[in-house]
Design a protein around this nucleic acid. Structure first.
Lengths: 342, 342
DNA sequence: TCGCGTTTTGCAAACGTATTCATATCGTGG
DNA sequence: CCACGATATGAATACGTTTGCAAAACGCGA
């Protein structure tokens, strides 16, 4: 294998018989350069296989055109989807994505440090509830951060998430109208604000019709843990007649466990409702009743928000909460008459 | 929001009363620096909130400590898993990951250009069959590339993939021994070498027992397309009595379609076999018979190979083909007596 | 205290580009 | 053909580090 070419703008300048500045200008869209020299330079550049060194460029422009994407639960189909969309969006805007997978409740501070050093122009976090000290640190460095699908009570960081409370509320009232009397909640990570808000909504939704949430189990957004939790819930009576899981990922696990380990029918014996509306939820085997998060809009809002903050150095943190949509399928017993969605 | 700090090594040098070189040395592991000045510098650095500018560092060391990860099918659970593993591995080695999602048969050359400009130290490709002109270009620039789960007939690029041919071969003989007589193959992308090799194996495996592959349908590794293809296969007799899909992702789609659209039982009416052994394959609803790819080993081999090539500037391309493991579950009719796996 | 080998330290030169500023060139109307 | 505004060009500087080199400081036995 040959050694790296390392052909610089000087090399092509020499070959084209112009100055280094000239060739630099040829690769800056808005720079002033005559058509004549431009073709000369581009010709020479092509012949030498020249590509501008983006590192040097970043150094001088003080912008890496790179955005950090940090997340953890890559096994939950929801995230790959937003990664894909976000990636396409940023690529279109000529930004690069630096991926950071934080090892699930692991050494987050370390990763954060790594991010800060990497000179990214912005950070898109879709995971890991930020401790407020870390949040503070982010803001101090002046790097724009937007949280997606998570939030932290710290002014100064932008957040876009969906209306978890009302999603939960809808589930609560829907289950209550369906005549369920022993509703269980399968929570996500303890540190997750989304899980808490969904729970709060559930409780209030049930209460609005005189019901309550009987039991809360921990699933930590994990497939296996959701399974354990479900077995636990049915270890001894009284058994739940409905389970609301904080994510589709867990809801599917619940359904699998109910059907194949516990011999329960869904929804005849127990209703199951999820959250997200992941593609799997629509598969005929599940037909999971769930609450749809507007992934496209979330990504769209988050990315444009981030880009805006990057461009105008001076910005204010914004919160965007997006509406969710109940998706009525067959995994939950339907109320006798249709529920009027608010 | 405040403006970026931009505290440089000079600032901390001044505050610590040393030269700029000294502070630089404090952040280079192997540099020679006395303990005394080191603490002085680190103290000053902490007080000022200094972080070495990795861009400037990259410029001088000519190494960005960054690796490009390029892929397309983020919806197939197989890929998020390897992304996660690869990410953790590289982070542990203090490398960063630049993510490139190539829009599915889209403008690959453009993305490639973008990658080359980004000055990555290496490229890990898990998708998109490289055209040989692009492959050539990669090699020319001298950037180490390793392909994972894909291959291209071009010496000079390292590849790690699993033994697709023998995986297919096993499927062929297993289906033949199970007494299937009308086997269909649901192919992946036409450009995909893996799909071709699996097919070749299937054909030979069937032939070894006097059978053949009756029909080939195109699924392009896509869930929806796999569904269409399945419907097509059962549009009119003769119907297949077994379908081998080039990925679990498609195999699941096939099962869903068979059961819910076509009212067929699996495996009583038709056997289904996949490839990958994605987590979903093990779910009780499917219990998909499949061929396991050793994801962990693939990632391990690919990453170490890449890192090795990066470290020693001079390297030879290597191919690693890893053994697969048949996973016998319930989606395919079992032969009367156990098949002795070779 | 001196001498000598070993660390430590500072100076200065890179790394490859963008960009300012002054100069040169061009186009055009008088 | 001249003058003049607009536009194109080149020289030089800066971005924030790493690192070779030479000088300085150090440790320590004599």
């Amino acid at each position: 294998m040959k050694r790296k070419s390392a052909v610089t703008s000087r090399d092509v300048a020499e070959r084209a018989g112009v100055s280094q500045s000239a060739v630099s200008r040829c690769f800056s869209p808005k720079a002033s350069i005559s058509e004549k020299t431009k073709v000369k330079v581009l010709k020479a550049a092509k012949e030498l296989g020249y590509r501008p060194n983006s590192i040097a460029r970043s150094l001088i422009t003080r912008s890496s055109r790179t955005i950090a994407l940090v997340l953890s639960h890559l096994d939950n189909m929801f995230y790959p989807l937003v990664v894909e969309k976000a990636s396409l969006r940023f690529q279109a805007e000529d930004y690069h994505l630096l991926l950071f997978v934080v090892p699930e409740e692991g050494d987050f501070a370390g990763v954060m440090d790594s991010i800060l050093q990497s000179q990214v122009d912005g950070i898109l976090m879709m995971s890991a509830s930020l401790t407020s000290s870390l949040a503070h640190e982010c803001v101090e460095t002046g790097i724009p951060v937007v949280l997606i699908n998570r939030n932290v009570d710290f002014a100064g960081i932008s957040q876009v998430y969906s209306d978890n409370y009302h999603g939960g509320y809808w589930v609560g009232s829907y289950l209550a109208m369906g005549g369920h009397e022993r509703v269980a909640y399968l929570a996500g990570l303890e540190t997750s604000s989304t899980s808490r808000h969904r729970y709060q909504g559930l409780v209030d939704g049930l209460a609005s019709l005189g019901q309550q949430c009987r039991v809360v189990a921990r699933g930590d957004y994990d497939f296996e843990q959701a399974r354990e939790a479900t077995l636990q819930l049915f270890a001894e009576p009284p058994y739940p007649d409905a389970i609301f899981a904080a994510s589709d990922h867990m809801a599917i696990s619940v359904m699998e466990t109910l059907r194949h380990d516990l011999g329960r029918r869904v929804p005849e014996d127990v209703s199951v409702i999820g959250f997200d509306d992941t593609p799997i939820a629509a598969w005929p085997s599940y037909r999971l009743t769930t609450v749809r998060q507007p992934v496209d809009r979330m990504v769209e809002e988050a990315t444009t928000l981030l880009l805006k903050q990057i461009r105008q150095g001076d910005f204010n943190a914004e919160n965007r909460v997006l509406p969710v949509t109940p998706i009525l399928r067959d995994s939950a017993r339907q109320p006798a008459r249709e529920l009027a969605t608010e």
